[in-house]
Nucleic acid binder design. Structure first.
Lengths: 156, 156
DNA sequence: ATTTTGCTGGGCAGGTTGTCCAGTATCTTT
DNA sequence: AAAGATACTGGACAACCTGCCCAGCAAAAT
């Protein structure tokens, strides 16, 4: 599992200033370039770093409404089948199976509250879904972050 | 609003292969380098692209358990104050205020189910939190994705 | 009709990457 | 304890890319 303090500093730097190159990073961190390069290769190889994709703001592309929906599915329907159908709806950004009375949890976005109704209709139309319960996210108090956790992980 | 098909292709390419440079991207997409560069600058300036940070797999750094908690807070306590306290817990990855009977929604991770208890204890200890209800995410049916939405956004 | 905007294709200097290497320190294995 | 493996350093090299500039052109807005 393998993340130490230097890994955390590397990840932190690249998270803060993704544009810096390996060379510049090595200067900032006070280590050799080869070291940074090797660490990055290892982190990627071990799957710690899944990718470097652009973080896209859904609000900026016209989907300012975020909502969380929990779904109950019919006993006969497989979770995977339902999830595959949900995957065809672009406004569904994330789906997990969960414990508890409900079966699936999803994050969905929409252009407006009215548009959210349209998206939910699409969701509940999916074969095998019995009931959907939706709450709207009003404000993002803590945006998705992992760095503090990386920090914590080094201190084992 | 400011994302067209070319933007989507650019973002798609960089999401798939973040390591490609602007020059290589321009070759792949069949447009001039300056165009790709200008588009990227614009996307970043308009806030469509929030950053290029590394996507870190929490499982790979030793936190394989993901859970969603909804919190009720005391009427007197401000959401912001509570959120600030939650921000001090590294295992809390995300917090939103929500509609409905509950007040806050959070995504938390832990080293194990037993460890999740420790994290939840930390959460409910926060001043102003009245009640927490937690479900564990069993499987990630659709990992967080935005690209299909970007696609959809271009078709207005 | 005129201006603005966006794309192209090109050129240039400077910086960066990928890739080696030898030397050294630390940790692990035998 | 000796030998081997592993990780980091500092340095080198050619090839490449970036940031920046420019002129020409076409489409869209005024």
């Amino acid at each position: 599992m393998s993340v130490d303090a230097l890994d955390a500093r590397i990840l932190g730097l690249f998270a803060a200033e993704p544009r810096v190159g390996v060379l510049e990073a090595s200067r900032r961190l006070g280590v050799a370039r080869g070291t940074v390069q090797a660490r990055l290769d290892r982190l990627q190889r071990d799957g710690v770093v899944r990718g470097w994709g652009p973080d896209i703001d859904t609000t900026a592309i016209g989907y300012p409404v975020t909502a969380f929906a929990t779904l109950q599915i019919e006993q006969g329907s497989g979770h995977t089948t339902v999830a595959a159908a949900l995957a065809r709806i672009p406004e569904v950004l994330e789906v997990h199976t969960i414990t508890g009375a409900e079966d699936l949890w999803c994050r969905i976005v929409a252009r407006s509250n009215a548009d959210l109704q349209r998206v939910i209709d699409q969701v509940v139309t999916v074969q095998g879904i019995q009931r959907a319960s939706t709450v709207i996210a009003l404000a993002e108090q803590i945006p998705h972050r992992v760095l503090p956790l990386v920090e914590a992980a080094t201190k084992n």
